[in-house]
Amino acid sequence: MDQENSKINELLKITQSSIEALENYRQALITAAVTGKIDVRKVVEP
């Protein structure tokens, strides 16, 4: 049981780290769009 708890805790740490990285990427993308560093007018239509 301790071994399984350790695996779960490690997965939680990895997941949290991924969430933080994605949040940082999202903020950087928003900043780049707002400051004009990327052109968001070129929207691909489905």
Score class of each variant (00 low, 15 high):
I30D: 15
S18R: 05
L12H: 06
E10H: 07
A33W: 02
M1H: 04
I38Y: 04
P46G: 11
S17Q: 10
R26A: 06
S6N: 07
E4H: 04
S6I: 11
I30N: 13
L22P: 01
P46K: 14
V44A: 10
A21W: 01
V34T: 15
I30S: 13
D39S: 11
A28Q: 15
I19S: 13
N9I: 01
E20A: 14
Y25A: 15
K7Q: 13
R26G: 01
G36I: 03
L11M: 14
L12F: 05
K37H: 12
T35G: 06
I19Y: 07
M1R: 07
I14Y: 01
E23F: 04
K42E: 14
N5T: 05
L22W: 04
D39Q: 12
Q3Y: 05
M1Y: 00
V43G: 02
L12A: 11
T31P: 00
T35F: 02
I30C: 09
T31W: 00
R41W: 01
V44R: 08
I14P: 00
Y25W: 05
A28W: 03
A32L: 13
A28P: 00
V40D: 13
D2S: 06
L22N: 11
K42Y: 03
S6F: 02
A32F: 09
V43N: 07
E45L: 14
P46I: 11
N9G: 02
L11P: 00
S6H: 01
S18N: 14
S17E: 11
T15Y: 02
Q27S: 15
I19N: 09
A33M: 06
S6C: 01
T15R: 05
L22Y: 06
Q27K: 15
A32T: 08
T31K: 10
N24R: 12
G36L: 03
S17L: 04
T35Y: 00
E10Y: 05
A33C: 06
E20C: 03
Q3W: 02
A28L: 13
